[in-house]
């Protein structure tokens, strides 16, 4: 059966490694063997690696608003002049590259959605490289990320149309925070609090895509979501805990999503989409449609 709450995940993680707990849960959930489950997750991680390699800085999205920024950030990251440092620069570049690949119809892995597909790779791939980890050693962190997403999907939502961008980038950031915290040796409790602190930081974020396209502001929000995932993981690893219990944080996320005006839930009517710039792009797109 799927893990129902972060409290249940924390409890189970006191006695056993979270990886084992979540693999077993997946086996019951889908009627597969541990070997089949792990092989599928390993293949999925392989797809993320291929998506990383597939980035093409020369591509532009349908509207022309998106493309090339990942390469721009990557060049700047290695310039030695960055504010955040080279490592965080490479995280930001990875987030933008994956988001741009998605907007330009390249193959990506939705995590949890296509619009938020850049967050998890952005926190995992540079960490893997820095720590010299194999793909096999990264797979358990994918399980931890997935379980956090499952709990959020069950108690709140992972769809921008239902819960705003907090449900997409917010969830992706929580998944990334949990995965990093786990990889760095954090306890199950720390993992769940890392996720909760990420959600709290992105609570209320609206889904306001210009012309309804997964381009602006979606791509750059992947960079922001990755940064918050890293800061939340570090807070949790330092021993800092969310004052509000993690499950209550997810409940609040649902309540905020329910209260969010429909113009701010993936309809392309409010927020960035409603700015004069956003409306001009929308009108231009509509006039070019056959």
């Amino acid at each position: 059966m799927a893990i129902e709450s972060l409290a249940a995940l924390t409890e189970a993680g006191k006695h056993e490694d979270l990886f084992d707990v979540i693999v077993r849960s997946d086996c019951v959930d889908r009627g597969v063997t541990p070997g089949e489950s792990i092989a599928q997750m390993t293949a999925l991680y392989g797809a993320i690696r291929r998506a990383q390699e597939g980035y093409d800085a020369g591509l532009r999205s349908h509207s022309g608003m998106v493309g090339g920024d990942g390469a721009r950030m990557r060049a700047y990251a290695s310039s030695g002049r960055t504010i955040c440092g080279e490592y965080i620069g490479s995280v930001l570049a990875q987030a933008l590259e994956m988001g741009e690949s998605n907007a330009c119809m390249k193959c990506i892995v939705a995590a949890p959605t296509a619009g938020s597909c850049g967050v998890l790779p952005a926190v995992l791939l540079p960490y893997q490289q820095r720590e010299g980890l194999s793909d096999t050693e990264m797979v358990p962190a994918m399980y931890v990320a997935g379980a956090i997403g499952q709990v959020i999907a069950q108690k709140a939502s992972i769809a921008g149309a239902a819960g705003g961008c907090q449900a997409e980038i917010g969830t992706a950031s929580a998944m990334g925070a949990a995965a990093l915290c786990y990889l760095a040796g954090g306890s199950a409790e720390a993992v769940c609090h890392a996720a909760a602190m990420a959600i709290k930081s992105l609570l209320g974020l609206v889904c306001d895509p210009i012309a309804g396209l997964v381009e602006v502001p979606c791509v750059k929000r992947n960079a922001a979501g990755a940064m918050i995932a890293m800061s939340s993981a570090d807070l949790a690893l330092a021993g800092i805990r969310s004052a509000v219990p993690p499950d209550e944080v997810i409940d609040a996320m649902r309540e905020v999503g329910d209260k969010m005006d429909v113009s701010l839930r993936e309809t392309g009517l409010g927020g960035m989409a409603a700015t004069p710039f956003g409306q001009a792009v929308s009108e231009k797109m509509n006039s070019t449609e056959p």
């Binding site: 799927a2 979540i22 849960s25 997946d26 959930d29 889908r30 489950s37 599928q40 997750m41 999925l44 797809a47 999205s61 690949s101 998605n102 907007a103 330009c104 119809m105 390249k106 193959c107 990506i108 892995v109 939705a110 995590a111 949890p112 296509a114 619009g115 597909c117 994918m142 399980y143 990320a145 997935g146 379980a147 997403g149 499952q150 999907a153 069950q154 992972i158 998944m175 396209l213 997964v214 381009e215």
Partner: peptide, 15 residues
Amino acid sequence: MNLFDILGPVMVGPS
């Protein structure tokens, strides 16, 4: 939703 509804699908973007 199962674990692979959260992680995946592997897909051509954008939506």
